[in-house]
Amino acid sequence: MYKIDQAANRIIEVDSPKFSELGFTERHHLQEWLAHTPAALGEELLIIQKEFDGFDDTKERLDLLALDKDGNLVIIENKLDDSGRDVVWQALKYASYCSTFTKEQIIKAYQEYLSKSGRSNEDAAANVVEFLEFSDLEEVVLNSTNTQRLMFVAANFRKEVTSTALWLLGNGISLQCMKVTPYRHDNDLYLNVEQIIPTPEAEELMISINAKAKEEKETVGKQHSRYRIRLQYWEQAVNALHKSDCHLFENVSPSKDQWISAGSGVSGCTFTLIFGKSESRVEVIMGRSDLKENKLIFDALASQKEILEDKFGYPLTWYRNDDKKVSRIQYPLEIDGYDKENWPELIDWMIKHMSRLEKTFKQPLLEAAEQMKKTLQEPVNTV
């Protein structure tokens, strides 16, 4: 830091002694300063404990415990001239201890802190409600799962501390390293508090990146979960199909996909079973490479709609899909497919209705394909 000498048009370096040279201590000075003026850390914080030792089966004490404006617990660890080697591990332990704190425990701890601080006339619950800008404690959510934050305060940070802090940040742990520097000019002393990790400019970007990474991780996790469920279902369903009178799927293996298909005797047209979370279906799919061919086959079948539905025994859903290549005829069942207790019922339903679908459409599909070929071979009338 430099002082500007306007008269000489020069800057003069301001002395920056160590805290220890000034006789300041971590407990009686830095901790007290931050407890009384938490805004020095760059945001609105409500200090709810100091030298907190309310952990089961341990005598460890965290320096300061605070709430941020979102109701998250902030674990603040203070060091003076050196961050120390173990500060990150220490704070992580405290965060794990605090992760189980309920709203009631937090309010109780804050009330104890108020009493020890000579403010027993204040109501902890009312202070929290006012700080978070709610109208009632019932509306307040405190210490949601995995939202605990870490804040390290020191004059200097060792390389092992900054390296670990950056790695934790990259893995979604919310933390900040705040560098505190004392300055002396004449008889006046000053304190500068600066966030060095993450830099303020990078913090918003890192939050966005971490949020995106978390979303992608959750999506991948859900995909893998769906794959496992589908594979388990098809293992049971295919085994039951092999033992049934429905011989369509004799050469089909279990799949992680949402469907399994069997040939119909017409190229590009299949009998397909669909397994979904809220709906499962039996389908006839016209998926030849040529859109026009699919529509001609579909139209030939649709011309017999009443006859085919009467033979099947139930109304069917017909999707010509004019602007898409594939056309479908399907019969659905609304059922929670991911509830394994429903699987025996669903498998029986699939076998029964796929057998009906095959008997209903096997021959008409062959005839529709032949009609499609003849239509395409007819000469075009140019008159």
Rank of each mutant, 00 (worst) to 15 (best):
S264F: 10
S264K: 10
S264C: 10
G265V: 04
G265L: 06
G265A: 07
V266D: 05
V266I: 13
V266Q: 10
S267R: 10
G268Q: 01
G268A: 02
G268W: 00
G268M: 00
T270W: 13
F271Q: 00
F271H: 05
T272R: 15
L273W: 01
I274C: 12
G276F: 03
K277H: 11
S278Y: 12
V282W: 02
E283L: 07
E283D: 11
E283N: 09
V284R: 05
V284T: 08
I285G: 03
M286S: 02
M286P: 00
R288P: 00
S289L: 00
L291Y: 05
E293H: 00
N294E: 02
N294D: 02
L296Y: 04
L296I: 05
L296A: 04
I297T: 05
F298L: 03
F298V: 05
F298M: 04
F298I: 04
L301V: 07
A302V: 07
A302K: 12
A302W: 09
S303I: 04
S303Q: 08
S303A: 13
Q304N: 14
I307N: 14
I307H: 15
L308T: 08
E309C: 07
D310S: 15
K311T: 15
F312S: 06
Y314L: 12
L316N: 08
L316G: 08
T317E: 14
W318T: 09
W318L: 08
W318D: 07
Y319W: 15
Y319R: 14
R320W: 03
N321K: 14
D322W: 11
D323K: 12
D323N: 13
D323I: 07
K325I: 07
K325Y: 03
R328W: 06
R328L: 02
R328M: 04
R328G: 00
R328D: 01
I329R: 12
I329Y: 12
Q330I: 09
Q330F: 14
P332M: 06
P332F: 05
P332C: 09
P332K: 09
L333R: 11
I335A: 10
I335K: 10
I335D: 06
D336P: 01
G337K: 08
G337F: 09
G337N: 09
G337R: 07
Y338G: 04
D339A: 06
K340Q: 15
N342F: 04
N342Q: 10
N342L: 03
N342P: 03
W343A: 04
P344D: 11
P344A: 11
P344N: 09
L346Q: 11
L346M: 12
D348C: 09
